[in-house]
Design a protein around this nucleic acid. Structure first.
Lengths: 214, 214
DNA sequence: GTCTATACATCGATAGAC
DNA sequence: GTCTATCGATGTATAGAC
């Protein structure tokens, strides 16, 4: 018996299509083609595009926030937390380059329904992944391991630094190709280098000491 | 005589619409409504949605890359370069929150036409803004002002850190609201704080000295 | 140049046979 | 459950009067 049910086949195809083209760009016919089924079956199983879309948003957010939560929860040491968080974000976004942009894009577009899904997904983990991160940073500050900073600003910097390459990869490669400073580019080793550089830069930047300048 | 010609009115309306909703989400009727004109005139002046879109992409890229170029070109001092680059990106993206995402989104979607526009826009400044940035970073390394790093990785980190908040603002505000750690949030002062925090973190992280850890 | 009316294509959704 | 055929809404684009 085939365990990859038709429902599951559809969901995977729909995820690919919605993430690649967004809500307004996605086509039911294209989802059916990806799944290798008749278009009518999409409506048979999932009633409407809107409904199918909501399930994809839920699934996507569960995957994204769930992955981060599983990786960082339980870590007590700040250096390990920092390194793990960066590595997880880069792995996640390089495996699914359009995922971060999809979440942000459709969350600013989506109305109450999408917000409710986000709320539900985040509250499923206890404590929520957002709280876990804040605690780790605050604790490190209290213990004097890092200097006093705004935890939220640090989280933004970590997210931005780690997710940006995957989001901007097409344009980066194009600009890089034009200027010739991407010769012999190897994606895999670039991403490994990226993990190290981000960690090193931020870890040094957080050290609890007086800086050279004013 | 009204200097805001009808062509210009249409372009501004189209820019708002395309940036807000993307290629597939944008509606010609909605552009006409924003411009306060009849829908037919869009085709009279710009022939097709595709053609209008290309002009918007060009205009957007000229604005974005041109702004950065004008701000950073001519700066010799590395610290000033770093500060100016960060400030410019944050000002640009907070004034036009959807602009960075639009450029990235539509550049990964767009085909040859969009790439040609990018090529054209970048090569208009001499030297291109990308080269200016690389030079500044490389010079600072050669002079021993900062430690040895990968210039491209640094540029990615700067872009990601500075642009991320504007891109993710809707989701950040929602998550922040849910967890109650965004009480009394003031956008303007947050952004000013953000400029300082990013600069401080990265400047310290680049200092040419031995770090605490391995 | 600007309008109304309408052609034409696409897409989501459903009816109905099997 | 799965298919073909088709409806109805929406969106781009144009014809033609003024």
């Amino acid at each position: 018996m085939n365990n990859t049910s038709k429902e599951e086949l559809i969901l995977e195809a729909a995820m690919d299509e919605f993430i690649a083209r967004g809500w307004s760009g996605a086509r039911m016919q294209s989802i059916a083609d990806r799944a290798g089924i008749n278009k009518t079956l999409l409506h048979y199983y999932y009633r409407s595009k809107e409904n199918l879309y909501e399930q994809i948003v839920r699934r996507t957010m569960e995957y994204f926030f769930g992955s981060i939560f599983r990786k960082i929860s339980g870590i007590e040491n700040f250096e390990e937390f920092l390194r793990t968080f960066i590595n997880t974000l880069i792995d996640l976004s390089s495996d699914n380059p359009r995922l971060p942009m999809f979440i942000m894009q459709e969350l600013s577009r989506g109305g109450e329904a999408v917000l409710a899904i986000l709320n539900d997904v985040l509250s499923r983990n206890n404590p929520p992944v957002t709280v876990v991160m804040l605690r780790n940073i605050t604790r490190a500050m209290d213990q004097g391991k890092i200097r006093k900073i705004s935890p939220i600003q640090l989280i933004m910097t970590l997210l931005g630094s780690s997710l940006y390459f995957a989001m901007a990869e097409p344009i980066v490669m194009k600009i890089g190709g034009m200027n010739g400073f991407m010769e012999g580019f190897d994606r895999k080793s670039f991403l490994e280098e990226r993990k190290k550089e981000i960690f090193e830069l931020i870890y040094r930047g957080l050290e609890n000491r007086v800086a050279d300048h004013g």
